[in-house]
Design a protein around this nucleic acid. Structure first.
Length: 615
RNA sequence: AGCGGGGUGGGGUAGCCAGGUUAACCCGCGGGGCUCAUAACCCCGAGAGCCGUGGUUCAAAUCCACGCCCCGCUACCA
């Protein structure tokens, strides 16, 4: 859109508040701000290196954001959409804090599940009030909380029900997943959303009498889009211009995953309505499904996925960008596999796109002295090819406007396939007057690429323009005739399976070395203990031979008694990275087979010494 | 369990909301062509009738109902 000369402002930011960060900071005994400072700097730098062209990437600790949020909620408050409730909430005398949401556990009053959370029971799904929990305890220190009265501020979401329904229904641009999900939530009945929390890390609530409370992170972070806009213009000394992007016909578009839909289609619009100031409501959201990694969901703790800093050390950003855009989960969940990565890079980028460019440029230099000739005469085929270029540009543009980026990528690749065919059919290497037309037309394809690739793979687009000695502005307008190009260099290179394996991209299929890496060993169970408060877990002491013992936590309590386990020889992965489960250290992993309702631990078929290697 | 989203040739994606000529595209596979290009490129071919069942309709991959299966969110899955 920027290329088309539309006025675009692209903003985002780090969401820095919330209890998890405060708890992590407590654990590390550092101020929370130190954690978020480090993180924000790192993330910001990475966005640059990936050429994600935010105009402003801000953070919720920004003073401008804090000030904006406080003002914003004061307005909402004055308009009568904020009310208070006295509540009795669990308070931990030892930690000297109230225990919101997940910080208190106890017996579920509905199904009797012993470890239900303060806000919801994970087993029966019942939404809970923390006071209903039987024998509650603090999840931080385990002590029994007392009930103390406190006051909380709420946003009157239900009073916007009708307007929201109208908004969602009347916005045909919303993708299906967003519309259906939002309408369901609205029709099921909206509840007031709590605005404040009794925690220290966050934005101080501005309401009279709310000293010491902070704004609930979710209700504040969504406003960051606006404060980021304000900040952008304030830094330029154009104090008021941010309004151009939030009022009077501005089109606000969000790029989010499907898990974030309600915040952008319900809560944010309601908050904007509540100011009564006439903010533009979201024009649309581009809400994708989920991307998976080799069939599994990405997981930070389990290290499933490729870290974006590591990815850049393996391959250029554009290789990733192209692959990821071409499987952007626009219609359904999609799955990244290394196999797919190879296919996209080698076949699409290298063979189809890169090779055509190189082919045309090399030919040009060899037979036309690197100078783009004027066409001799254009025959039907030439004209058809020129039409294809125009058609592709139009489609590309229209698809991007519909946020169908995946298909836009298709259009580019398809155009290049047609171009390859055209070049083949025309056989310019046979010489003849037609050759100049063919090269002229082919170079127009290349010229179109320098622009089409810009939003998808900007580094490559830039490199290509350099070979054509074109600036971005010239690429948009200048005709190709007479253009003198540099001696061509390939834009991409293929990735071999060997290279991929070396760089750590898992290959399909496991080698004996991979198995050896697992460190499978026999161990003897020499101690079984229950883990306090855990329904399924045992703490096991294991003899790994040579005087070495390790401990593990295993989910076997429902299937084995301590007596059955004690003394058994079992199979373990001995070189696991230690992890904590229910606060208990687990250093190895015990292997067991499982099927529905049944678990069987693996044991050696005849006695061997603990510590024996397994191949 | 509850809530969302799905099941389309061997693999991967689109098409479904706005039903309608031989179900599209990429990879892979079999055969052939070209030699300008990065062992690239081009052509031909085999291969699915769109999870199942029933319905609506002149007409359904596309709409409706039921069933089966998958995936995400919610978890102490070591």
């Amino acid at each position: 859109m920027r290329l088309k000369g539309e006025r675009v402002l692209y903003v985002s930011g780090s969401d820095e508040h919330g209890t998890p960060i405060e708890v992590e900071a407590l654990r590390l005994k550092v101020p929370p701000r130190k954690l978020t400072d480090e993180n924000h700097a790192k993330v910001k730098e990475l966005f640059d290196r990936w050429h994600i062209s935010f105009d402003n990437y801000t953070r919720t600790e920004s003073p401008i954001h804090v000030e904006f949020v406080r003002d914003f909620y004061l307005k909402v408050y004055r308009n009568g959409y904020v009310f208070t409730r006295e509540e009795e909430l669990p308070y931990c005398p030892k930690c000297r804090r109230f225990l919101p949401d997940r910080f208190v556990q106890g017996v579920c009053p509905r199904c009797g599940y012993p470890e239900a959370y303060g806000d919801q029971c994970p087993t029966c799904g019942a939404p809970l009030d923390p006071r209903e929990l039987g024998s509650p305890h603090c999840t931080i220190c385990g002590s029994t909380p007392e009930v103390r009265a406190t006051k909380h501020w709420y946003f009157d979401l239900p009073s916007f029900t009708e307007k929201l329904e109208k908004y969602v229904e009347g916005n045909p641009r919303l993708p299906e997943n967003a519309r259906n999900f939002s309408l369901r939530l609205i029709r099921e009945g909206l509840k007031p959303r709590s605005l404040t929390r009794d925690i220290g890390w966050g934005i101080p609530a501005p309401f009279p009498g709310a000293e010491g409370k902070t704004i609930y992170v979710w209700m504040e972070a969504v406003l960051g889009y606006i404060s980021a806009t304000i900040e952008y213009f304030r830094l330029r000394g154009e104090e008021e211009r941010w309004r151009e992007f939030w009022f009077d016909g501005a089109r606000v578009v969000f790029f989010i995953g499907k898990d974030n839909i309600p915040f952008h289609t319900i809560i944010l619009p309601a908050l904007l309505m509540a100011t009564g100031e006439g903010y533009e409501l979201p024009w649309t959201v581009s809400s994708t499904e989920f991307l998976m990694f080799e069939g599994k969901k990405f997981s930070k703790s389990q290290r499933i996925g490729v870290w974006i800093d590591e990815a850049l050390e393996m391959f250029p950003a554009d290789y990733w960008r192209y692959t990821l855009l071409s499987i952007r989960p626009e219609v359904r969940d999609t799955n990244f596999t290394w196999e797919l990565f190879l296919e996209k890079v080698n076949s699409d980028l290298n063979d189809t796109i890169g090779n055509f460019v190189h082919r045309a440029l090399t030919f040009l230099c060899k037979y036309f002295n690197c100078r783009v000739p004027a066409p001799s005469t254009l025959d039907d085929y030439d004209r058809r090819m020129l039409e294809e270029i125009e058609k592709a540009k139009k489609e590309f543009d229209s698809l991007l406007h519909q946020m169908r980026i995946q298909q836009a990528v298709q259009v580019v690749a398809d155009l290049l396939r047609k171009a390859n065919k055209y070049f083949n059919d025309k056989e310019p290497w046979r010489g003849g007057v037609q050759a100049s037309s063919t090269l002229n037309v082919s170079m127009r394809v290349v010229a179109a690429l320098t622009v089409l690739l810009e939003p998808l793979i900007p580094e490559t687009a830039e490199a290509l323009r350099k070979q054509l000695k074109l600036s971005l502005a010239e690429a948009l307008e200048k005709p190709v005739e007479g253009l003198e190009v540099e001696k061509p260099k390939p834009l991409f290179r293929k990735i071999s399976r060997e290279e991929l394996a070396e760089k750590g991209g898992a290959e399909a299929g496991v080698t004996p070395q991979d198995v050896a890496k697992l460190g499978l060993r026999v161990a003897r169970i020499i101690g079984v203990e229950e883990v306090p408060k855990a329904r399924k877990l045992y703490k096991l002491r294991l003899d790994l031979g040579g005087g070495l013992t390790k401990q593990t936590v295993a989910g076997l309590k429902e299937y084995y008694s301590p007596e059955e386990l004690l003394g058994k020889l079992v199979v373990v992965v001995s070189n696991m990275k230690p992890a904590k489960l229910m606060g208990v250290n687990s250093e190895v992993m015990l292997l067991a087979a499982s099927e529905e309702g049944k678990v069987a631990i693996l044991v050696p078929e005849k006695p061997v010494k603990p510590g024996s290697r397994i191949f």
